[in-house]
Computed example of a mutant assay.
Amino acid sequence: MKQATMLSGDLDKRILAVILESADVRNEADLTRLVNGPLREVLPHEMLVCGIGGVSPQGNFVRKFLQFNCPFECYEYYAEMLNSDGRVNSPLMQKWREAQEPVFFQSGRDDEQFPADWVELFNKYKMRNIIGHGVIDLTGSQSSYFIFSRLDGEVGPEHAFLLKIITPHLHLALARAIVDVQEFQAFVGKTGKPLSERQSEILYWMHEGKTNWEIAKILNLTELNVKYHIDQIFSKLDVRSRVNAVAKAHELGLLKAPRG
C-alpha cells in the first residue's frame, strides 16, 4: 500500500518521463540526456556507472561500461575490487546475484550487514551510499547493471522500489546506446590480451562443436594453423581445454557469430 501511494501525482509523471525517453534512446548522447534529465529527477544522484557483462558465482565480468559524473575516486573504488582475472565482486553484487532485486547500502547505517573490509574500502573513497540493479538475460550468463552512488539523503526501500520499476526500461535503452562502445578487455585471461578477429571466429566454431579439420575447411586454413590459434586462445583465456575455453568465452561475452 505504501508503494502504491508513492506512485501518485508528480512522481508518476517523472517515472513516465523516464520510460518514454528510454524508448527514444538510440546512442550514448541520448542516454546522457536521459541520465542527466528525467532519471535524475526520479533518483537524485551524483554518479552512475552502467554497462553489460558476464555473470558468474565468482563475480561479474565487465564487457562494456559507461559512466556519468564519476570523479577519480569512483574509478579507484572499482579498481580495488577487480580480481586478477577481471571479475568485480562486491558484497552488494553477491547479494544481487542471489536475489536479483535492487540492493543498496547506506554508510553508517548498514555497516553491520556487510563485511568490515568492504565497508572500510567504501568509506575510504567517500562513496556515502549506493544502490544497484540490472537485468539478467535468458541464459543467466550475461546482465546489464546500473549502479547509482551518492544519492541525496539516505538510500532505502523507496529508492529500490523506483529502481525496480525503471530498470527494465533503462536496460533496453542501454542495449541500444552501448553498441558502439569499445569492449573492456584489459583483464581477459592472464595475458590481458584481447582475442584477434581470427581467434574469435575459431572460438565461435569451437562453440558450435566443429573439429579442427572442420574449422580449417570453413575458414580456408590448415589444421596446423587452427591448432596454433586454439593454443593462443587457451593462453589468453587461461584455460586448458576446448570446453573450458567455450565456457569462459560465454561468461565473458566473447562468442560472436562471424560476419557475413
Rank of each mutant, 00 (worst) to 15 (best):
L39Y: 11
L39G: 11
L39D: 15
L39W: 09
V42F: 04
L43W: 11
L43M: 12
P44C: 05
P44D: 00
P44S: 02
E46F: 01
M47I: 11
L48M: 07
C50P: 04
G51C: 08
G51Y: 09
I52S: 10
I52M: 09
I52Y: 04
G54M: 14
G54D: 12
S56H: 08
S56V: 03
Q58D: 13
N60F: 14
F61C: 09
F61M: 06
K64D: 06
K64R: 13
L66Y: 03
Q67Y: 13
N69C: 05
F72Q: 07
E73Q: 04
E73G: 00
C74S: 10
Y75R: 07
E76I: 01
Y77R: 10
Y77D: 00
Y78P: 00
E80N: 09
M81V: 01
M81H: 02
M81T: 07
L82Y: 15
L82T: 05
N83V: 00
N83E: 15
S84H: 10
G86E: 11
G86I: 11
R87M: 09
R87W: 04
N89C: 05
N89P: 03
N89K: 02
S90K: 02
P91C: 06
L92I: 14
L92W: 10
Q94K: 15
W96Y: 14
W96V: 04
R97E: 06
R97G: 01
E98P: 03
E98L: 15
A99P: 00
P102N: 02
P102R: 11
F104R: 01
F105C: 03
F105K: 02
Q106R: 10
Q106G: 03
Q106A: 12
G108C: 08
G108P: 07
R109G: 03
R109K: 12
D110Y: 10
D110T: 07
D111A: 03
D111K: 04
D111L: 03
Q113Y: 06
